[in-house]
Nucleic acid binder design. Structure first.
Length: 466
RNA sequence: GCGCCGGUAGCUCAAUUGGCAGAGCAUUUGACUCUUAAUCAACAGGUUCCGGGUUCAAGUCCCGGCCGGCGCACCA
């Protein structure tokens, strides 16, 4: 029977720093209790050395037949077993800081182990399906998840510090809305109703602003029934926040400070390497309009007012066929994506998106065909999306109706009309700016990972059939 | 969803032109009083992802399926 508790009082990392002064062969006279997993075991006749890993790091266990209780049993520990050890802190003659094992107890047995002490676990299928073994075998896997945790913590603390109230909104939605995406479908038996897993918390959050929460944020999971790739997991984490009385320029300023601040909190610098290439979070980030960037890329002046025929011809030159339902706005957005996105390495704000692709954003004060919307790009991918919120219920209804026409034309990602949301706007949404940040994407940057699965503890995998 | 690549012992990986399926580590047994991926000796360990086919002979070639990686599409 293994124990139900173990009263440990020391960690590997703190012992290493507290006893750094011990010289080779010196004994401290201090007895500590440590616990963790046996990573390596080296027996040598009447001596045995084990490498113990706890949450802080690793430290050596030094067992002697003459001193250690049940020395024979100690030498028969398996790699991966959890043990609790009581013993004196010493440095061995060969210079390794150790706990000289007096008494010890096996806290849990590892019935499986991976054996290879050098290569760890390399098989992706095994690593992701049994992340617990991956985390035990591969320190780098643990490191990436720790980075993610630090990113989440930093985002939360910075939102709290800016007086945003953290809230939670429904994941089970009668209407999937707030973004353009195919939803997951589910069913509630007692209510005898279909539900959709949320694709964004956006509309709920703005309803809270209507209700008087002037600054709110939600950090949580959203679900999109779309392709899986090294940059897309079907469920992913989004930070969304809304601030009354701000516009999109205020929100851009907040966004860059937030993201650069996370880099400072987690890494202590804004200057990093991502996938072997220098990358800088340093603020301010450039602000460029979508039309400007697209014009530069295609070598002629284009905008939302360029005739659709010209835009579709430019798309065709880039092997993109403009769908008949696309107006000039959608064409411009597509042109931007195919011609600019791949070159946006350091963070940049792309601004002034067409109304046609921004059904929840307020029209631009200088051009009613544009919106006061931005997306930030980093490492050639979208990192955040924000805008001055559309708070006119009449215009919002028109935008939803346009979405409905797209849906009728076969666009299965178009938004549905949300009458409750329109009614909320009729109660009065103050001028407000909103922001969404992909937390997994940001974590990839901070953890220097190219695969989103590395920053998700248990990524979505296809279930095994028999 | 499409394309390319991969799947061999518990783990990491070999296996020539189609010719007896191997090593290291882990497990088991033994030796060893300062090891560090300890070392040394011995034993054991297999539906070569699954199902068909070609062949005297298939881990290897062909067809189908499963799972994964990458790319494309979709998207954040």
């Amino acid at each position: 029977m293994t124990p139900y508790t173990f009263d440990h009082n020391a960690f590997a990392a703190t012992l290493r720093s507290a006893y750094a002064h011990l010289v080779d062969g010196e004994e401290s006279g201090v007895v500590v209790k440590v616990a963790g997993r046996v990573m390596l075991l080296r027996t040598q006749g009447k001596l045995a050395f084990a490498t113990l890993r706890d949450s802080s790091g690793e430290i050596q266990l030094f067992a002697l037949a003459a001193l250690t209780e049940d020395f024979e049993g100690f030498t028969k520990l398996h790699l991966g077993d959890w043990v609790g050890v009581t013993g004196e802190v010493v440095r061995t003659r060969r210079g390794e800081l150790s706990v000289k094992v007096g008494s010890w107890v096996r806290l849990a047995e590892a019935l499986h182990n991976f054996g290879d002490k050098w290569a760890g676990i390399a098989d992706f299928d095994l690593r992701y399906r049994h992340r617990e073994a991956d985390l035990w075998a591969n320190p780098a896997s643990r490191e990436s998840l720790v980075r993610r945790s630090q990113v989440v913590r930093s985002l939360r603390e910075r939102c709290w510090a800016a007086d945003f109230t953290e809230v939670e909104t429904p994941m089970l939605n009668a209407i999937p809305t707030g973004a353009a995406a195919r939803p997951f479908r589910t069913f509630h038996h007692a209510l005898d109703s279909d539900f959709f897993l949320r694709i964004a918390p956006e509309l709920w959050l703005k309803r809270l602003v209507v209700g008087g929460f002037e600054r709110v944020f939600e950090l949580g999971r959203v679900f999109r029934n779309e392709g899986v790739s090294p940059r897309h997991n079907p469920e992913f984490t989004m930070l969304e926040l809304y601030a009354a009385y701000w516009n999109y320029r205020d929100m851009m300023a907040f966004t860059e400070e937030l993201v650069a601040g996370v880099a400072m909190d987690v890494l202590g610098t804004t200057e990093i390497e991502y996938q072997g290439r220098p990358f800088s979070f340093a603020t301010p980030w450039p602000r460029r309009t979508m039309a400007e960037l697209a014009s530069e890329a295609v070598g002629e002046e284009v905008s939302v007012h360029t005739p659709r025929e010209r835009l579709s011809a430019l798309l065709a030159e880039r092997d993109v066929e403009a769908h008949p339902s696309w107006g000039p706005g959608r064409c411009l957005a597509e042109l931007f994506e195919v011609s600019c996105e791949h070159s946006l390495w350091n963070p940049i704000f792309v601004t002034d998106f067409p109304v046609e692709v921004s059904p929840l954003a307020r029209r631009h004060q200088g051009d009613p065909e544009l919106t006061e919307r931005f997306e930030s790009y980093a490492a050639c991918r979208e990192l955040s999306n924000g805008f001055t919120e559309l708070n006119d219920p009449v215009d919002q209804r028109l935008r939803f109706e346009e979405q409905a026409r797209l849906a009728a034309a076969g666009d299965d990602e178009a938004m549905a009309i949300d009458e409750d949301y329109i009614k909320a706007l009729e109660w009065g949404l103050p001028p407000t700016a909103g922001l969404g940040i992909g937390v997994d994407r940001l974590s990839m940057l901070i953890a220097d990972e190219s695969n989103i699965r590395e920053v998700i503890a248990f990524p979505t995998l296809k279930p095994l059939k028999d």
